[in-house]
């Protein structure tokens, strides 16, 4: 199999299977959560608006007062990584072309040089977060194989994408195939690791906002 065949496989059959596992996995995990149900709260709420949940879904993206100072590394590196990753996935011109071929429509992209800088920033942030995970007693205690696997699975697409773009290490076609494989690995792992928070974070934040909101507290 030459590099082009490999790329064709990566873009075709492999991608299709990865997407099938991704979609089925996400669906399964959502069923696993919602299937457990939630008892109706019979206590008279101070505020009975589902808006409490929606608000917390967004407001929880900001650090509560005093927390940034207590844990600057987690917050700052966390922001850089998340913003960088999202921008790279959805605002890099070649990615938008991929989405256009998939969905039939596209959107405006960021200049490639900026995306390039964001990738570097994200990779560095991931490095800092790993070091912090290994050094911070709380994080180290909480961490297991799944955490390091999720970390590696997130780093690989960034790294291989950067290397493909800059024609580093391997020939471009091969590097691009490896990049797509790494994305497929991420897609397959996402539903079954902590990476699933990509989706469940909106559910857990909603519940949090709802539970507190019923008691009259904006959380």
């Amino acid at each position: 199999m030459n590099h082009l065949d490999l790329l064709t496989f990566a873009r075709g059959t492999a991608l299709n299977w990865a997407l099938v596992i991704f979609v089925l996995g996400i669906t399964l995990r959502l069923f696993e959560i919602f299937g457990l149900g939630r008892k109706a709260d019979l206590a008279k709420p101070r505020s009975n608006s589902c808006g409490n949940g929606w608000r917390t879904m967004f407001t929880r993206s900001l650090p509560p007062e005093g927390m940034l100072k207590r844990e600057p590394v987690t917050y700052i590196a966390g922001y850089i990584f998340h913003v960088g990753l999202l921008a790279v996935i959805f605002l890099f011109a070649p990615h938008i072309e991929f989405f256009r071929s998939f969905f039939g429509f596209g959107w405006a992209s960021l200049p490639s040089a900026l995306v390039d800088a964001l990738v570097v920033a994200s990779i560095l942030a991931l490095g800092v977060l790993l070091a912090h995970r290994l050094n911070n007693p709380v994080k180290r205690m909480l961490s297991g194989f799944g955490d390091y696997l999720a970390w590696a699975a997130t780093l690989l697409p960034l790294l291989t994408g950067y290397m493909a773009y800059h024609h580093l290490m391997f020939e471009y076609t091969l590097m691009l195939a490896l990049h797509i494989f790494s994305v497929e690995l991420l897609l397959v792992l996402l539903p079954f690791t902590k990476l699933f928070h990509t989706f469940s974070v909106f559910i857990s934040r909603w519940y949090n906002g709802d539970i507190f909101g019923r008691k009259g507290v904006a959380s």
């Binding site: 959560i33 844990e71 987690t74 966390g78 709380v138 961490s143 902590k194 928070h197 519940y207």
Partner: peptide
């Protein structure tokens, strides 16, 4: 006792450890 909120909470935890910084026992 495990219900949908608890399942979503455990699903979402990324082991960031920030809860420790909010807890006076830590």
């Amino acid at each position: 006792v495990i219900d949908a909120p608890i399942a979503s909470f455990f699903s979402s935890c990324v082991h960031c450890g920030l809860c420790a910084e909010a807890c006076l026992f830590y």
